[in-house]
Design a protein around this nucleic acid. Structure first.
Length: 166
DNA sequence: GCCAACGTTGGC
DNA sequence: GCCAACGTTGGC
């Protein structure tokens, strides 16, 4: 039985809203509130349980990768889209045909030191992370695929315990 | 707080 | 279907 190869991702979160420490505390969390179709499609159509995720702190000082998470549940409708009290409420999301989806992610590891966006850029300049989406100018996508080699490189830069495997 | 980048909306 | 206006992201 052919199991799909593990894939690798980067997901952005503002640490003021939800940080790697918050994830460690709750151990698992629904990744709600994504309101971008491309990001939604990655979660809904491409993510699978066991995929590894670089947990990126955006709008932070400095911004960068703070740790590793793992996809813990495949996509299901984002309940905040149906919650009129939620800031993510979307009247156009029909419960019979949900517009917005989320996965669950679980805590894997917090890096001893953040791998800053600057460090990622330097590595990209040096050719080690060439083409990685997060270092591209104007790249705003909050859920993005990461090459396995790039993922492994970021782990190495962080001195992480987590390893990529087939 | 500024603003570049870029996605979405809505009038036509 | 075009595209101007508007809103959001996110680095700085």
């Amino acid at each position: 039985m052919a199991r799909r190869a593990r894939r690798y991702w980067l997901m952005k979160s503002e640490p003021e809203v939800f940080s790697i420490d918050d994830l460690e505390r709750v151990s698992s969390e629904g990744w709600d509130g994504v309101r971008n179709y491309q990001a939604r499609n990655f979660m809904r159509d491409e993510m699978a349980v066991g995929d590894l995720v670089l947990f990126y702190h955006s709008n932070a000082k400095p911004p960068g990768v703070a740790g590793v998470a793992r996809v813990a549940a495949e996509a299901y409708p984002d309940p905040t889209a149906f919650d009129t009290e939620s800031k993510y409420y979307d009247a156009k999301s029909d419960p019979e045909d949900p517009r917005w989806w989320q996965v669950d992610v679980e805590f894997v590891e917090k890096f001893s030191e953040l791998v800053s966006l600057d460090a990622l850029r330097e590595a990209a300049e040096a050719g080690a992370l060439e083409g990685m989406a997060v270092v591209q100018r104007g790249q705003r996508l909050s859920v993005q695929p990461v090459d396995r080699a790039h993922f492994a490189r970021v782990l190495r830069m962080a001195g992480a315990k987590t390893r990529v495997r087939a």
